[in-house]
Simulated scan of single mutants.
Amino acid sequence: MNYIKLLNAAFEKFYFDERLNPTHISLYMALFQEWNSSRFAPDFFVNRRDLMNAAKIGSKSTYHRCITNLDTWSYLEYFPSNNPYKGSKIKMSIIGTSDEPEEDHYDPKLEPLAERYHPIREQVIDQHCPTSGQALVSTINNTKPIKHNKHPNSLKVVLDFFSNKNFNLNYGKEFYEYYEDRQWQTSDGSDVRDWRALAKYWVEQKSLMKEKNKLNKKQASHFRDNLRTTKNKDYGQPL
């Protein structure tokens, strides 16, 4: 497992997932650290009190709501324990990582967040002088413009991308029409700056919704079968 790849993939997913609040992310990071401590084992056991303390969660109900949400939203699998001497089992999901470098993995849309806390506008001068008394100046050109993918020029460009990724082409058409109608802006009114990363998230959410609908239909069918009665049933007989 690559610690950096896993963490970057998780933060990329956080950015586009509007269901999350800071408590969800804080709890996920506490769990991620436990996962790292277990050398990224397939599953591991956790102590609720330790997790609440690490994530700075003061309410049991908030803890249970957040960890259940993370399970429902496929960030992890949660197996609660009824044994007070044995912690609950956690199985973390592997989010969008592979051994090979992924095309367009860098997401320029995350750049404004980084600049908010670490603004880069010009060359940085080291305020701590060495023994020679000469100030050190960074040789990195931080003013070099970054090429953004922004939005596609046509439906064909989107369909070609979906085809290369073996994605459902119907999802590609829906994706293009949805954001074209919104003038390629996100729900918060910001301009889309990397449509390829957004398209991958679109496919992921569509796939999850499809699986959820299948499960709901299966459960509904099972419920109807349980209610079905035969025509020959005699309701006059004593129970």
Rank of each mutant, 00 (worst) to 15 (best):
139 T>Q: 13
166 N>I: 13
86 K>Q: 07
120 I>W: 13
173 K>F: 14
92 M>V: 05
94 I>F: 00
110 L>F: 04
134 Q>P: 07
86 K>P: 06
168 N>F: 05
118 H>V: 12
91 K>E: 09
92 M>S: 06
160 D>H: 05
146 I>T: 05
100 E>G: 00
151 H>M: 08
136 L>C: 10
93 S>Q: 11
106 Y>L: 02
152 P>Q: 02
118 H>Q: 13
157 V>C: 07
161 F>W: 04
104 D>I: 08
175 F>S: 11
126 D>N: 09
178 Y>P: 07
98 S>E: 00
98 S>R: 12
179 Y>I: 03
136 L>D: 15
152 P>G: 11
120 I>L: 15
169 L>N: 10
146 I>D: 10
136 L>I: 04
110 L>V: 01
119 P>S: 05
171 Y>H: 04
151 H>N: 02
138 S>T: 02
150 K>F: 13
91 K>L: 03
163 S>Q: 14
127 Q>Y: 10
138 S>A: 08
88 S>M: 14
151 H>D: 09
143 T>V: 09
90 I>R: 03
182 R>Q: 04
162 F>T: 03
107 D>M: 00
113 L>V: 00
107 D>E: 12
167 F>S: 04
156 K>G: 14
156 K>T: 13
136 L>N: 10
144 K>T: 04
162 F>M: 11
99 D>E: 05
116 R>V: 03
89 K>Y: 15
129 C>S: 14
168 N>R: 06
171 Y>N: 10
142 N>E: 07
104 D>N: 09
179 Y>N: 11
97 T>W: 11
171 Y>D: 07
126 D>L: 00
128 H>G: 12
108 P>Q: 01
91 K>N: 03
146 I>H: 14
119 P>F: 07
143 T>E: 02
137 V>N: 10
117 Y>A: 08
133 G>T: 04
170 N>K: 15
99 D>I: 10
182 R>M: 09
137 V>S: 05
130 P>Y: 01
139 T>F: 15
117 Y>P: 08
115 E>V: 07
121 R>C: 01
148 H>I: 09
146 I>S: 08
153 N>H: 08
93 S>V: 09
129 C>F: 15
111 E>P: 12
148 H>S: 11
174 E>Q: 08
128 H>S: 01
154 S>R: 02
141 N>T: 02
133 G>V: 09
132 S>C: 08
170 N>G: 05
97 T>F: 03
97 T>N: 00
178 Y>T: 07
168 N>W: 01
134 Q>K: 12
135 A>M: 15
161 F>N: 04
175 F>T: 01
108 P>S: 01
124 V>N: 15
148 H>F: 09
122 E>H: 06
179 Y>F: 06
87 G>L: 03
121 R>Y: 00
86 K>C: 15
163 S>T: 10
164 N>H: 11
167 F>E: 01
101 P>T: 07
95 I>R: 00
139 T>V: 13
175 F>R: 14
105 H>E: 02
172 G>V: 03
129 C>E: 11
135 A>R: 06
86 K>Y: 01
135 A>D: 09
159 L>N: 05
172 G>Y: 10
123 Q>S: 06
109 K>Q: 11
123 Q>W: 09
123 Q>F: 15
121 R>P: 03
145 P>L: 08
173 K>A: 06
93 S>H: 07
134 Q>S: 15
143 T>C: 08
